[in-house]
Design a binder for these strands. Sequence first.
DNA 1: CTGATAGTTCGAATAATTTCGAACAATTCT
DNA 2: AGAATTGTTCGAAATTATTCGAACTATCAG
Lengths: 107, 107
Amino acid sequence: MASDTDLHHPARHDLRLTDVLFALSDPERLAIVRQLSDGPLEMAQCYLSDPSMPKSTKSHLMKVLREAGVIRNEPLGRGRRLSIRHDDLEARFPGLIGSVLGASVDA
Amino acid sequence: MASDTDLHHPARHDLRLTDVLFALSDPERLAIVRQLSDGPLEMAQCYLSDPSMPKSTKSHLMKVLREAGVIRNEPLGRGRRLSIRHDDLEARFPGLIGSVLGASVDA
DNA sequence: CTGATAGTTCGAATAATTTCGAACAATTCT
DNA sequence: AGAATTGTTCGAAATTATTCGAACTATCAG
């Protein structure tokens, strides 16, 4: 049956700009989103700056991004498939995600 | 003499995307920036959602925006003139401030 | 000079986030 | 079924951010 018991994703019209900006304002979370800019990834293939970071912390980073509506997190096999909610973000905040991802990656 | 003793503003090349996003991720701060999008304002003419908010809190909001490089805060008469650092933001993060200010203002 | 206006800064209290380990759930592999 | 792999969730501890009042600085008006 449908994955009702699954993680909640806010609807497009419920996205809030400040929540999106906040989610992207953490370097680790921004780095995750950058990795996803080339296309969906399985969570296990999504790397963090500190490889020894506990999985609960990684999961929490994903939760903040998901609850802000930045990423989609769906079950895939025994893991999770992560993707940027491009269409929804573009519909609500045109140009935003592009300018964030387009910005140079340095300091 | 020169306002050496004045508030510090980060140089253009020192602006960090995450700091800018964080500064803009607070509804009150974002509302301030929106007011400035029509042009510079004196701080006293810059209104907050809660008019009874203490001036120390208001000053702190401005500080976060200034330290992130979002706004300029310079002495003018007995007050302060606030303005968005459009050129610097555009140079470092093209399109970003426009997409943030362009986004619809609702919930 | 005095008083009023406009802000900044400091320190302390409060609130919100982040981090981590342990416990739990679902899926795959053998 | 049992073990390994991937993650989520919960609760407590640690870190950050916010809020506020009081003290201080500077400018302007009289």
